[in-house]
Design a protein around this nucleic acid. Structure first.
Lengths: 174, 174
DNA sequence: TATTGTTATACTCTATAACTATA
DNA sequence: TATAGTTATAGAGTATAACAATA
């Protein structure tokens, strides 16, 4: 740092590392998502797979279109995601008898077992992520996050990571 | 829901919507990152641009390689990012006189102005994101998040969103 | 004619690797 | 020979749009 003669160079005045809660939320959130992806990757699953398994497990028999809508993704993407889960023997497509255009989605026995493994993995993940906090602090954090999520109208259980930038309303610029 | 005869279908036993703090952190984090991207998009910037502007503004004169290392990305990616910022007139490359292989990176006057706009945008973003919390609660949340970030050894100011899955250590599987 | 699911195509993004110039 | 930066290429991932089956 020998050139202090340039008046335009004022490091202190420029934005240093951002330290706000919003940035920390984004940073920790990305970190948490990445670690979780690594862990479920050891089970042969992607985070998207996990979300789908959870939704199907929680409400069996739904159509692919319904899932696509809940996740905020395009139906064709659900096709390939379900393809992968079906190839692994975790999910089953059944033609609806009421409307033969629909595929009712169900978990197989292996699928339910996989979901159990995911739950244990998620618990371990949570414990590691919050290692810095004791039980009271974790409860406190959870409560604050729930308030924020509710006010921001985030759908419970749906990770925005499904949506990509291209799918969001495009800004008109220049 | 007319088929309650299948013993394999036990929705209640399967994982419902995840409600842990880890999931909420990932969900809110992705939401926050997305909203921030929209906002700085109106300024003609991507979140990656913003991170680079901040790093250059905070420590002018650094080389592209140093930036790549801090961000955890490959040098060739820094090239295209800086290209974009230079085309917009926000960043300037200067050949180092000590080692003419290096490019010292500096903000232009417009770059500093842009960083100012970003700071205001970030403040508004933070305020909107935490609208559910009063001042005391925000401080509380910030403190908890800082503990978590420190224990998880997250580099202050560096968003993991720069790194992509392909760059992380690949798991050996099958 | 409308809707569910599928397939085919194109686009975007990013890492890898070859290359140029300086050292 | 090694290093900073650049360019060229290839690969992964995902949306868009055309398509087939059913309503």
């Amino acid at each position: 740092m020998t050139n202090a003669r340039q008046p335009e160079e004022t490091p202190a005045a420029a934005a240093p590392a951002p330290r706000g809660a919003a940035f920390l939320l984004a940073q920790i959130g990305a970190h948490a998502a990445g670690r979780f992806a690594e862990r479920v990757g050891e089970l042969g699953l992607t985070p998207a797979d996990v979300g789908l398994l959870r939704m199907i497990g929680g409400r069996p028999g739904r159509s692919q279109r319904a899932l696509a809508e809940d996740l905020g993704v395009v139906p064709s993407r659900v096709v390939s995601l379900i393809d992968g889960l079906q190839d692994k023997g975790l999910v089953e497509r059944r033609r609806s008898v009421e409307d033969r255009r629909n595929h009712e989605l169900h978990l197989t026995a292996d699928g339910r077992r996989a979901l159990g493994s995911v739950s244990r993995t998620a618990a371990a993940h949570e414990d590691d992520l919050l290692a810095a906090l004791d039980r009271d602090q974790r409860d406190l954090l959870l409560g604050l996050l729930q308030r924020v999520a509710a006010q921001q109208e985030l759908t419970p259980g749906v990770h925005p990571g499904y949506r990509t930038a291209a799918q969001k309303p495009r800004r008109s610029r220049d």
